[in-house]
């Protein structure tokens, strides 16, 4: 029964990891930008959910509808006004710029919210469901379903919508896409906006599960990084596969060799993937 519980825990956690990583993966895959502000976007999304629930009693499920457009606009504006100026520069330049932006946003959150840990506690609590002694908390289940839905929506946007095809075209070959009449700067901003929207929504969902503090942003960023490498850059299904693989390794590792070594195990796996399969589980050169 312990094995079944560990497996279910890992599947649920894996979907949450995918949700954390998907926007990061999109931005990295399309813009070739390692977006270090991603973790702070997630925390800001969590504060948005917490603030709306505490002050206006707006459920986090509705907060998703507010977070998505708000963060899209925020991401779009940041890309257009700041990031776009150095988008063709070497990756170290954009990395440093997003690092600086992250410092500003994170310290602003410490200033306004303080570093104290807060918790979004639903009243009444949603409780858990159990089947043959395997227990799954309902909030995690709903967050998992939402994470899957967000992943599915992004997949559909990239597959079915004209803008999505343009994003993939830019990712495949920037110059060719420009020659075909794609406005690359606009696509970059839309992709960054989508990445920010996904981070904001992930933050809303994480607020239900994890304590909220600006100090947690690095933990989210670290997970997003590992998931992207495991799953494959820019791949929607890859993020899902990477998230579940990471959660499984952590869960099994924690049970068999102790929680202190679970992180070591996941980073060892990261190194193995970087050497043996650098494109990740489902990553393919240039196409979603």
């Amino acid at each position: 029964m312990l094995a079944a519980q560990v497996l279910i825990n890992a599947l649920v956690l894996g979907c949450l990891y995918a949700c954390i990583a998907i926007g990061f993966s999109l931005v990295w895959g399309v813009l070739n930008v390692i977006n270090l502000i991603h973790g702070s976007f997630i925390v800001l999304g969590a504060y948005l959910a917490w603030g709306l629930y505490q002050s206006l009693h707006i459920s986090p499920w509705y907060a998703l509808g507010i977070a998505a457009p708000a963060f899209f606009v925020l991401g779009y504006v940041i890309q257009r006004l700041i990031l776009n100026r150095v988008i063709t520069a070497p990756v170290l330049v954009t990395l440093t710029l997003t690092f600086g932006l992250d410092l500003i946003l994170n310290n602003a959150m410490i200033y306004y919210f303080k570093a104290d840990y807060r918790k979004l506690t639903l009243t009444p609590p949603m409780g858990s469901v159990s089947l043959f002694d395997v227990v799954v908390p309902i909030d995690r289940l709903i967050a998992t379903a939402s994470a899957l839905a967000l992943t599915g929506i992004l997949y559909l946007i990239l597959r079915r919508l004209r803008v999505g095809r343009a994003i993939i075209a830019v990712r495949l070959d920037r110059d060719a896409a420009m020659l075909m009449g794609v406005n690359v700067n606009s696509i970059y901003a839309i992709a960054f906006g989508l990445g920010a929207a996904l981070a904001g929504c992930a933050g809303v969902l994480m607020a239900l599960i994890f304590p909220i503090s600006p100090l947690t942003s690095t933990a989210y960023l670290g997970k997003a990084f590992v998931v992207c490498v495991l799953g494959g850059l820019g791949s929607v299904s890859g993020a899902l596969a990477g998230g579940i693989l990471l959660a499984l390794i952590e869960g099994i590792g924690s049970t068999l060799i102790g929680p202190a070594h679970a992180t070591t195990l996941s980073f060892a796996l990261l190194i193995v993937f970087l050497i043996v399969r650098p494109q990740g589980l489902l990553g393919r050169k240039g196409f979603e």
């Binding site: 670290g222 102790g258 202190a260």
Partner: peptide, 15 residues
């Protein structure tokens, strides 16, 4: 022991 910055304790708590 659990590592600093551990984001999830579900497997540990199940055990």
């Amino acid at each position: 022991k659990y590592a600093i910055n551990t984001l999830d304790h579900s497997a540990t708590l199940s055990q």
